[in-house]
Amino acid sequence: MDCEGAAAAEIYRLPEECVAYAISMTTPGDACHSSAVSPAFRAAADSDAVWDSFLPPDHAAILARADDGIAAAGECASKKDLFARLCGRPVLLDDATMSFGLDRRSGAKCVMLSARALSIAWGDDPSRWRWTPGLPGSRFPEVAELLDVCWLEITGKLQLSLLSPATTYAAYLVYSFADYTTGLECNIGMPTPMATVTVVSGAGGTTSRPPAAPATTTTTEQHKICLQHMGEEETIMHRQELVIRLRKAFGRTVRFDPDMDIRCPRPRDGGGGGGGWREVELGEFAVPAAGGEDGVVEVSFKEETGRWKTGLIVQGIELRPKCTSKLIKLDS
């Protein structure tokens, strides 16, 4: 037997607990791949000890707030089943004002604030907004439909402690359109809607601090947003118009800056049930490694061109990890 074969044989002799511990130090994808090595590795890779390490430490406390009682009902036979359930079908929390799920690649938390959990300008005026139940593909039982406003502003807030530490997140507005819409398209020469993501560290959390606590730290980023996607030719014309206006304003040659790009929507994956839902990225932010117990993230979308608008249907704002790796299958 050669050296490599001897080393492999020694690995197979390791106790299952040792193999499980080693696998738990990797990723969910690595655990699925290692289960194909041998029956012994599969037993270790599928064990509760491994998949419990991929679940957030506070997942039991979060699931205790679930509206469908996932933990009490014993729906999942193992920790791996629970992980797969939260990746594929997020659970509703706190009377369907929030959903909680996991990122399939990393196990990081994914949170979505429902329209009811958002602050919507004129949202309590029935002549401006209508609350509609049961639209196909919606994660929540109720969504907000815009009837008629000239000032569109939507804001959501969440404590950073509800997200995974040491993780970069992106915020997405999840929405659709009614059969008839006006005032939501991006017109050349018109101001574009703006999205703002603000993270305040050191304030707004649940922990108590003495009066002499350090000053808070605030970081903010802004982006131009287009709700109704422009065609390729119209997008190019819009960018050219921006450059022309800058040249006229400053009287000098202006180099095209990628930051001038307008963020456009895309069809939403995994929504299920149709409904024409789409999403547009509003911005990104980082949760500190310490977990951000005293931090708050505020995400806002504002359109204040003065145009009257109608037909926007808001499902919520989703916060999920930024990741570019390939999807993994949990049934491998």
Rank of each mutant, 00 (worst) to 15 (best):
P141C: 02
T27G: 10
G295P: 06
G156Y: 02
T216Q: 07
G5F: 01
E281V: 03
P321G: 12
G5I: 01
D259W: 05
R252F: 06
S99P: 07
K302R: 15
P57W: 10
P258E: 01
T253V: 12
D103E: 15
F54M: 10
E75K: 09
G205N: 01
T192S: 15
N187L: 15
M230Q: 15
K157A: 14
S47A: 06
E185L: 15
R42C: 10
G291F: 11
T192F: 14
I244K: 15
L162E: 09
L86S: 09
A178I: 13
T206G: 08
H238T: 10
I236Q: 10
D67L: 15
K248N: 03
L93P: 00
M1Y: 09
E233R: 12
Y21K: 05
A61S: 13
R278Q: 12
M25H: 12
L160I: 14
A195Q: 06
A213V: 08
L55M: 04
E10S: 11
T181M: 07
A171I: 12
V299C: 01
L147C: 06
V143E: 02
S34F: 10
V243R: 14
T235L: 12
E17I: 04
D95A: 10
S114C: 13
A249H: 10
R268Q: 13
T196V: 11
D2T: 15
C18P: 01
R130Y: 08
T198Y: 03
S99L: 15
D68L: 10
D81Q: 14
T198H: 04
G306I: 04
R89E: 09
A73E: 08
A49S: 14
D261F: 03
R85H: 05
G107I: 11
V287Q: 03
E185P: 06
R278D: 00
A108Q: 01
A171D: 06
R239S: 11
C32F: 05
G202W: 07
K322D: 03
S24C: 03
P211N: 14
V280T: 04
H33G: 14
R116T: 12
L86Q: 05
D52T: 14
L282F: 04
P210I: 04
A40I: 09
L160N: 05
F285H: 04
V297K: 04
G270M: 09
T219H: 02
I70Y: 14
S201E: 11
T155N: 03
A49I: 00
S201L: 13
A8T: 06
G251P: 06
Q159N: 09
G205P: 00
L147K: 06
L92F: 02
Y21W: 14
S47V: 00
D257C: 11
A117Y: 06
G137T: 03
I317N: 09
A61E: 10
L152H: 02
M230E: 11
D269G: 05
L158C: 12
A36N: 07
M112G: 00
A66V: 13
D124G: 06
E17Q: 06
A40Y: 01
V280F: 00
G205Q: 02
V287H: 08
A212C: 14
E16T: 09
S161F: 12
I154Q: 01
R245H: 07
G88E: 12
V314K: 00
M25Y: 15
M25E: 12
C110F: 07
L312A: 01
K302G: 05
Q159Y: 00
L92Q: 02
T26R: 11
W129Q: 01
G291P: 05
L146Q: 13
G231T: 04
A115K: 03
V174P: 02
G123Y: 13
L14E: 09
